[in-house]
């Protein structure tokens, strides 16, 4: 009798425990996912989407020459992703739109300047407006206005909070920063996480405007228009002359032990053909 009662109690508790158990907390993590070794057959490049169209052009030209290891350009993983991939050896060259932090510099990484990219306000190609004042831009971002000067509706699109395009534009128009923070806080506008997603969103949304790379528009021949701000049109000349201060510097990031592997490709980029191709792609070459 007692034994059967105990068995019943045990069954009841067991059933309750089974009913209530969860999947368990994540186990303690490992520090690295897997050891990366250099692919003997190719050079891999990954990083910010801003520079991908340019690097893809350079890689195509390099591969066409068939003089060294072929270059493979991976889809955008962002500047930080590119730097980390280079640090781990997952790629041979990272592509960054921001300078290396002191801690990253301490991890045996070196930044090699590639080009300067103008950050512009891109609009849907059907938009008739081609010029906007910085004040009107702030009003749009702050949500106090939702129309362009000609009265047509405007749809603001944002990049993620840490994207370098915003900080570049805010160097030009500081009042954009608080308006943007407010927009994030109120989830006022759609946020795109990659350059290609932003390009597609602007080109497919009538009245859309958002921060974008001039070089990416030119290099990828995207069907987008760019707005002049306060009468200054974003061109390579304006960038070169300093009349368009919204810019960011693209650079390769390489681990010192991989420098020898990438040296032929970097020489090509630094060469006359490479520099010409950078300018043709809508970027301003930066001397190495």
């Amino acid at each position: 009798m007692i034994a059967s009662r105990r068995a019943l109690l045990a069954s009841l508790l067991g059933a309750l425990a089974l009913l209530g158990c969860d999947d368990g907390a994540p186990p303690s993590s490992t520090t690295r996912s897997e050891p990366w070794t250099a692919d003997p057959a190719v050079l891999r490049i990954a990083g910010t989407g801003t520079g991908i169209p340019l690097v893809a052009r350079l890689a195509d030209a390099w591969n066409a020459r068939s003089v060294g290891l072929p270059v493979v350009v991976e889809p955008s993983v962002g500047s930080t992703g590119g730097i980390r991939a280079a640090r781990d050896g997952a790629v041979d060259l990272g592509l960054s739109a921001r300078p290396l932090s002191p801690s990253e510099q301490g991890e045996g990484l070196r930044a090699l300047p590639l080009a300067r990219d103008a950050v512009v306000v891109a609009v849907h190609p059907a938009t008739r407006v081609r010029d906007i004042s910085s004040a009107a831009l702030v009003e749009l971002l702050a949500g106090r206005s939702s129309r362009f000067a000609d009265g047509t509706p405007a749809t603001v699109l944002l990049r993620d909070r840490d994207d370098t395009a915003h900080s570049a534009l805010e160097r030009m128009i500081p009042a954009l920063h608080p308006a943007r923070e407010q927009a994030y806080a109120h989830k006022r506008f759609r946020v795109l996480l990659h350059d290609d997603a932003m390009g597609e969103a602007i080109s497919s949304t009538p009245g859309a405007l958002g921060p974008f790379s001039l070089g990416a528009i030119v290099a990828s021949r995207l069907p987008l228009e760019v707005l002049a701000i306060d009468g200054v049109r974003p061109t390579l000349a304006a960038l070169e002359e300093g009349r368009w201060p919204a810019a960011r510097d693209l650079s390769f990031v390489v681990r010192t032990d991989r420098e020898a592997r990438v040296a032929p490709f970097l020489s090509f980029v630094a060469g006359a053909d490479g520099q010409r191709m950078i300018r043709e792609a809508g970027y301003l070459p930066v001397p190495p």
Partner: peptide
């Protein structure tokens, strides 16, 4: 699927998307 080799290096964007 989009970044078979380097997906884990896009973690910042992935985190943003998850948060969103």
């Amino acid at each position: 699927r989009q970044r078979p080799l380097l997906w884990r290096y896009d973690s910042a964007k992935l985190a943003d998307r998850i948060l969103e």
